[in-house]
Simulated assay, not measured.
Amino acid sequence: MDRKLNRELVKATALRSGYSFTKLAQEVSVSTESVSKWMSGETNPRPGKAIKLGKVLGLSYEQMFGVRDRTLEPQVAFRLVRNQDPSEEHHERAREMGRMYEDLVPFLPFNQFEAPPRLKSPTADYEYLDELCGSLRREMGLEADVPVSLPSIFNHLSDKLQAVVIPVFWGHRKNKAELAAHIYSRKTKTTWIPFNLDTKLWDARFWAAHELAHVYTFDVLDDEAGEIFSDAFAGTLVFPVPIARAAYEELAKVRLKTQKFNLIVEFAKRMHVSPICVAKQVDRYAVAKKQPPVNAEYDGIYAAISRMSKREKTVAEEFFGGEEPSVGQLLEAAANIFKSPFFDTLSKYLKTNGGSPSFIQGLLDCSLVDAKALNSELA
């Protein structure tokens, strides 16, 4: 964190509110020693704890740390499970991670002279996305009727767009509901994508494609337009128009919801995506082609999918089985499945600057135990 806590204000507010260091530590869920270090200036609270400290004392983040020049701040975007709205804590934690990622940039294996490409005039128009996603599929060596593999998306992100995918475990702990985060450093013009390994496998391709769309448009579209475009792009890439047409034609022949749901699940399994992705793409196809509606996204489909979801594997379960992966397995998967230079880059940084579990903990927003294990392996 590049700003210092306004210790005098925080101490005065705590005193006025009747908070001792011990009581304040209990409210913020840290040790009394941590609070003492904050107040002495030895350390700063991490973003999540800083925001919680502000809530306890009735102080804004800006009051505690001063107004920040946002012009070179990392830009962040989130998608959370169950369409929850990201909190300021989510955003500040991601911006802090982005500032830490900037330290790794000199060690990345990417071309430092050429910026990755951006789309000229991105739009969620159906015909535009059909042509764009068809072109990308051909570039990835994929026919229009085959599933998009996760490695093919991640390889495109790394090789073509110089984006760094970071496999993380965010579903293991309370309130870690991110499917993926997107962090763009304006200062270094680099993109970082922490990808939650606890994401359901049938959602993973869609969210990887969603982040791919963000890389193409993050400094071109504003937040709302970027989310709309990324959702439409992802659906079209993983469930392309020829398959949406075939699904529409099959669904148009049935009337019973049971038959409709079974067909949707059949196409979902065929393309390795979630049934709701199929339903949305079929309905989009009908609207775009001015065909009679089949109402694939009907009332009750979410409840049916929710019941199915309990049996769906996560990305981690697919790649690592039922066991928690070792550090070595995680590093191997990062390189071979996620096509990511992140851990090699981090290793070079640590060997140059000295190992630091706390630095790794901040980079990955992980537990100190996991950070120590990674530090031991990489440094």
Rank of each mutant, 00 (worst) to 15 (best):
E131G: 06
D130A: 10
L132D: 01
D145P: 01
P151M: 06
L157C: 11
L142P: 09
Y128C: 04
Y126F: 15
L129S: 07
E131T: 08
E127T: 14
K160M: 09
P151G: 06
R138I: 02
A144W: 03
F154L: 06
Y126G: 07
E143G: 13
Q162F: 14
E131M: 05
E143T: 10
E127C: 01
L150W: 05
E143M: 02
L157M: 15
L161Q: 06
G141T: 11
C133L: 07
Y126W: 15
H156E: 10
G141I: 05
L142G: 07
S152G: 05
F154M: 12
H156Q: 07
Q162R: 02
K160C: 11
P151W: 04
S149Q: 08
E143H: 10
D159W: 00
G134M: 01
L132C: 04
S149M: 08
L161K: 02
Y126L: 06
D130F: 04
Q162D: 15
Y128N: 03
L132F: 06
Y128L: 03
E127V: 14
I153V: 15
L150E: 12
C133Y: 09
G141Q: 10
D130S: 13
H156P: 00
F154E: 03
L132I: 10
M140T: 07
G134E: 07
S135L: 11
E127I: 10
C133R: 13
G134Q: 02
E139L: 10
P147Y: 07
S135K: 14
C133A: 06
D145E: 14
H156F: 15
K160Q: 15
E143Y: 01
L129G: 10
I153P: 05
S158T: 12
E143L: 08
Y128W: 13
R138F: 02
N155W: 05
Y126T: 10
Y128E: 06
F154P: 03
D159N: 09
K160W: 01
Y128R: 09
F154Y: 12
L136E: 06
G134A: 01
L161V: 03
M140N: 02
D130P: 00
S158V: 00
C133T: 15
L129R: 13
E139G: 04
D130W: 08
S149K: 08
F154W: 14
E127P: 00
P147N: 09
Y126R: 09
L150M: 13
C133E: 13
E127H: 12
